[in-house]
Computed example of a mutant assay.
Amino acid sequence: MPKTLLSDRQRHSHVVRRIAAPVQRLPKEFVHLHRTEAVLLTNWSSLGSGRYAVSARWPRGGLFGDSVQLLLAQTIRQSCLLIGHAELSVPLSHQTLMEWMDFSVASDFYDPKNKPDNLFILLTFRPNNPRSLRVDLSILSEGRLVAESLLDFSWIAPGAYRRLRGAHAEVPWGGAPVPSPVPAHTVGRSHADEVLLAPVRVPGRWELRMDVSNPALYDHRVDHVPGLVLIEAAYQAAHAVTGPGRGPVRVMSTFDSFVEFDAPCLMEAVVLPAKEEGTVRLEVTGTQNGERTFSVTMDCPK
């Protein structure tokens, strides 16, 4: 990275032209959102043999502000959900679960001058089993590959999901106190209401702030902390440790269990030996009730 995918671009040029213009309205239900302004995708098309093309438009400002990390993670999430529901017959009533997600970006991806407006996304879906898919995803801007992702997601019927969640299927919404944030600038954010980390007494550790009033992270009522919230919290922890100007070029996320709203989730960031020269590897883990709930490993440039 960066590299070009001109052969793919040329092979599917007719599809690019066909999906370049936005549809009148992409159903927000396909991407599990209530707010229309949160929908980043504009159209999609099947390429055959388990391959699909999606177009997206990143707004200037708006709900996600200028957070490239949030826009990228939402683009990946929305693209998978859209194709799952619109093309692969995943029922809208089923709960979808992200099991793990890896992605990498071009080294200049975070440069504000390179922030794209329109994106072209190629996705390949392969079944793991009847209720789980592996997705290989490439994001292009003007024919240049700017990001890649590999992830697994599965889905579960409503009744089975309620049995799985038990007492956590119905949780109080917004009633729990939210601890005060660390200073916004220390985690690369502009405003306190964007901060997901609360200080604790140990350096390199924080408590996760579960602030459901943040519309960019909590579009609608859910029964557990979404995976994208955990990835955003890991970004902020990495910024606190490595400092500004070191956006991760590779992110590897594993979700071990649900992060619940009824108990503190503690986070810790540890610097690991880097596998590549010129990078810093950081592992951010979350722990709740004494058990690891998620892990995000990031490679950041020195």
Rank of each mutant, 00 (worst) to 15 (best):
N43Q: 11
D66K: 07
V15Q: 09
L123Y: 00
Q78W: 00
R144Y: 09
Q288F: 05
A198L: 03
L41F: 05
T254I: 02
S257F: 11
A274Y: 08
H191K: 07
G84I: 02
L196T: 05
M267T: 04
G243A: 11
H85P: 00
K115W: 09
A233P: 09
Q236T: 04
D193G: 02
S253I: 02
L145S: 11
V39G: 00
T96I: 09
W173H: 01
G278S: 03
S132W: 00
A157V: 04
E194K: 04
G204K: 03
L63H: 05
S141M: 08
V222Y: 10
I139W: 01
P248H: 03
L63F: 10
P215V: 04
R201K: 14
V90D: 05
Y161E: 09
A237D: 10
C300V: 06
I19F: 02
L133W: 00
L70V: 14
L92F: 07
R131F: 13
R209C: 08
M298P: 05
G143D: 03
I19H: 04
D262V: 01
D117N: 05
W173E: 01
N114T: 11
W206K: 00
T287E: 15
S295P: 10
L47C: 13
D117R: 12
W173C: 00
M210T: 13
L72V: 05
H14P: 03
G290P: 01
S93W: 00
V241L: 15
M267H: 01
S149H: 00
L26C: 01
G227W: 04
A56D: 03
E277S: 14
D117L: 10
H168A: 12
P177S: 01
N214F: 05
G247F: 00
A73T: 15
